[in-house]
Design a protein around this nucleic acid. Structure first.
Length: 568
RNA sequence: GCGCCCGUAGCUCAGGUGGAUAGAGUGUCGGCCUCCGAAGCCGAAGGUCACAGGUUCAAGUCCUGUCGGGCGCGCCA
């Protein structure tokens, strides 16, 4: 298309090629000519007609014409579609791999992972898989919050109520629920009790200075937190391991050199006893310049400083040229400042893309923060338990023929898939309204619907005595397609362009929308085009089409971190 | 006060770079199992795209203002 524009005398023109909004008229359409014609003061339809005459796509298109105000409409030939579907390679890996460093999940010490961590964890994990599938190098970074004030609040509380615990190797210190209780009490007191707050701050200073008893306590608390985190990643099928953990604490030794770098460039200044940077364009409440605090007046460091060190490590140490952060939208301003200062201080080179991908909070149907009966954010362990028991109630009556082991596996897979898909299929940015019934209804645009389709395909292939691989390799000539067959074939070929766009724009819900479209097109095909009862040519072709659908669906779901089951 | 995000069908949401008739799901109503799994398929009804201006051949999309909701704004992360 670009060549045709050039041949028409238009250099450097973007054809604005997109899939057609009018499936009844075209498969793809080029809209770019209209704007160009206007700028050159020629009639759009006449320009489009010239482009069409220079278009050499007879081998892939059966119909090309000019329509409306000057769209170029293209209908691909069935022969081309079928040829493409028979290719062995279904997904191309990029020739220009990025090193993508992805910051996600990042739970905090002495807290159970809760519903607030879910979007970061699920979305970050899906994006990591998508970049990998496209051939990029991915470095996962679990920036666990293991170094700041919350630990001080916890320690101060432990020391106050049970000093003997603070010095001993007590098993209670390995019980996360006990620690969470202490932390909650501590953080509530921190706000109102000045003596307690001082003790908490002192504990942080001790920790960061390396005081042995405080460090020993810290190690125990940290290990208890990580243990619970590992368990949840396993249940949720999240690809984060201990190797991906690089928490706030790991940057501690880098902080003085960060401060020094900013000082030597004249960027850091003292204000009210604290060391700050004042990047341009940020204003506080009264319109005065807004500081980014590097070091508190008591000498303690803050998360800004740690994040600057992390930027430097991810660019210089890991060689990342795309740094992605998945956190909630409340941190937008923090990341704007972080990126601005990183650029000012030369911690991130110009060619490196710094991207914060914020998302809204998880709320209940009334728009309030999603909390459990205890009044706190719902822990992920509870959320998973409930997802499984709800899924069990739906599935058990439908499939009494599955054995207990298989049934439990199906329940776990569907429950986790439903949660992940529900979060991934919505645009980031906005708040997410948590609704069990919609998520697990097994109807409409949900994971169960997609998983159901996968199992239907597996089932019909099994009846034909085949697996997906075998059916994909069947040799079958093109036959006279129905509308449903053609729509399915066309949709199957849009997988690549969808994934490319998801990686560029970081919008996983495009992939969900695509997979849902693909599934509903398969379902229509399946409903209207008998497979096993057809003559052998058509039967082989339809089996092959079905196998293609299974493969695309399963790999697409795999990119989202969602597993499928052969029967459900 | 300043800044950021949001407002699309009863409900939950899509709407790529401004393009053709604003789309799904759910809910409601009506069809389809002697036929590869009915967790499915087919159909109907349902809209002032918060409101008012502006730019444009063309605005849900861009600009300005108003109203409504959420979030952030110095020693927490």
């Amino acid at each position: 298309m670009r060549d045709a524009f050039v041949a028409t005398g238009i250099e450097e023109a973007d054809p604005v090629l997109t899939n057609s909004r009018r499936a009844d008229l075209a498969d793809y359409q080029a809209n770019g000519g209209i704007g160009i014609a206007k700028r050159q003061r020629v009639a759009p339809r006449i320009l489009a007609q010239s482009v069409v005459e220079n278009l050499a796509i007879e081998d892939i298109a059966c119909e090309v014409n000019v329509a409306g105000p000057g769209f170029i409409n293209i209908r691909l030939s069935n022969d081309f579609l079928w040829r493409k579907l028979s290719d062995a390679i279904s997904l191309e890996r990029t020739d220009h791999p990025d090193v993508v460093v992805i910051d996600y999940s990042s739970p905090n010490l002495a807290k159970e992972m809760h519903v607030g961590h879910l979007r970061s964890t699920v979305i970050g994990d899906a994006m990591a898989r998508i970049f990998e599938a496209l051939g990029h190098k991915v470095v996962r970074q679990n920036h666990v919050g293991d170094w700041g004030t919350p630990f001080g609040q916890l320690v101060a509380q432990i020391r106050e109520v049970s000093p003997e615990l603070a010095n001993a190797e007590d098993p209670k210190l390995r019980d996360l629920r006990v620690l969470v209780e202490h932390y909650r009490t501590g953080s509530e007191k921190y706000a109102g009790d000045k003596t307690f707050a001082d003790a908490a701050r002192e504990a942080v200073v001790q920790l960061q200075r390396g005081e042995p008893k405080t460090r020993a306590l810290w190690r125990q608390v940290r290990e208890a937190s990580l243990e619970s985190m590992r368990d949840l990643y396993r249940r949720l099928d999240i690809r984060l391991t201990d190797d991906d953990i690089r928490g706030e604490s790991s940057y501690h030794d880098d902080l003085p050199s960060i401060i020094e770098a900013l000082r030597s460039q004249g960027l850091a200044t003292e204000s009210d006893g604290a060391l700050c940077v004042f990047p341009e364009g940020f204003k506080g409440k009264d319109g005065s310049p807004l500081p980014m605090l590097l070091q508190k007046s008591d000498g303690g460091y803050l998360y800004h400083t740690t994040d600057l060190a992390a930027v430097r490590y991810r660019t210089s140490g890991l060689g990342g040229n795309r740094l992605l952060y998945f956190t909630d939208a409340r941190q937008i301003q923090h990341f704007e400042m972080l990126f601005a200062v990183s650029r000012l201080a030369g911690l991130a080179p110009d060619g490196c893309s710094l991207e914060h991908h914020p998302f809204g909070s998880v709320t209940d149907k009334q728009g309030r923060p999603f909390k459990s009966r205890t009044g706190y954010a719902v822990p992920l362990s509870e959320l998973l338990d409930e997802a499984e028991s709800r899924t069990r109630r739906v599935i058990a009556p439908k499939r009494r023929d599955l054995g207990a082991t298989e049934a439990e596996h199906v329940i776990r897979t569907v429950a986790v898939g439903a949660i992940k898909y529900a979060l991934l299929s919505k645009n980031l940015g906005q708040n997410y309204v948590f609704d069990w019934d919609a998520m697990l209804s097994l109807e409409g645009n949900t994971a169960p619907y997609l998983l159901y389709a996968c199992s239907r395909i597996r089932s019909v292939l099994a009846r034909a005595g085949m697996d997906v691989e075998g059916a994909r390799k069947l040799s079958a000539g093109l036959w006279a397609w129905t509308g449903q067959e053609r729509a399915l074939a066309l949709e199957l070929l849009r997988c690549q362009e969808t994934l490319d766009q998801v990686a560029t724009d970081v919008r996983p819900h495009f992939l969900c929308n695509y997979l849902y479209e693909l599934t509903s097109k398969f379902m229509r095909f399946y409903e209207h085009c008998p497979i096993l009862g057809s003559s052998s040519d058509v039967r082989n072709g339809r089996l092959k089409l079905a196998a293609n659908a299974a493969q695309t669906l399963e790999s697409g779901l795999g990119c989202l971190g969602i597993s499928t089951v052969p029967r459900m």
